[in-house]
Amino acid sequence: MTILTLLRRFGTLIGFVVIVCYFWAQLPDTFMTARNWLNITQQLSMLIVVAAGMTIVMVMNDFDLSVGSMASLSGIVAAMLFSFGYPIWLAVGIALLVGLLGGLFNGVLVGLIGILPFVATLATLTMFSGAAFVVSGGKTISGRVIPEAFGNFARQGIEIGPLTVPNLTIVALAVVALVWVLLEQTTFGRRLYAIGGNLEAAHLSGVPVRRFKLIAFSLTGLSAALAGLLYASRVASANPTQGSGLMLNAIAAVFLGMTMSGQGEPRVLATVLGVLILGVLDNGLTQMAVDSYVRQILVGAIILIAVSFSSISKAKRS
């Protein structure tokens, strides 16, 4: 392995370590503490869930722009059902079902009808967002209609020794584990990668591409809905736009992760590292009192640097 291939393969990882070390040096007392890292994972839990789901469709070279508005919609659906007096498990179940069906709808548009994912999910982005506004009447649903236990879920955790691991962190880790098993340990996952590698070849070798797209988009929708519920629990309320920031960050995280894999394909653990880079920047720069707008510029620059590294070294190889 030459230095260049090392950089290409591990450049983003090295970058992450550099960022962490920098914050550690700048914030010696507060950054590298168990408490702060648990905070970061809790803060990132929603993005991790969305990004893990996004990884599934991006493995097939597709992507889903509607995840943010699906997250908003699922939160709104659950909150409205709470206001009608539904028990938590049922309201949450129905909200997740909405996510699954919304994702399936995306899958039909992309897999069966054959619309480009950019166009199809751009259209469903506005549809889901509109539905969230219609269902909620444009209002933020908060206060007494949200069951206390639902809001408490995001505030509590499991005590392990002196530390409390937040419930949100545990859910995020569970989702990552499930997606990892699905993508890396099953035939289904390997075939998804086959579709991403060469759609025609996969089709000709008998992979049921359409069915795979339906399932993959459904799972992405489901994870978006789950993220929306985590968000709603964290803020103990639901607002028709609250998930909108998740989509671009999720795609950014997957792209950051893709720079770390051999063939430039998405891997869910790499996606998690991508999310961590974004979240650590947020946490560290906030603690250092750096302007929140500067952080946005930095994030964009870091994505460009990471992707440039892998592109340049690829070009040299060919």
Binding site: N39, Q43, M46, Y231, R234, V235, S237, N239, T241, Q242, S244, G245, D282, N283
Partner: peptide, 8 residues
């Protein structure tokens, strides 16, 4: 606009 981020 991100309310959860206010908590973070």
């Amino acid at each position: 606009g991100d309310v959860a981020a206010v908590i973070s």
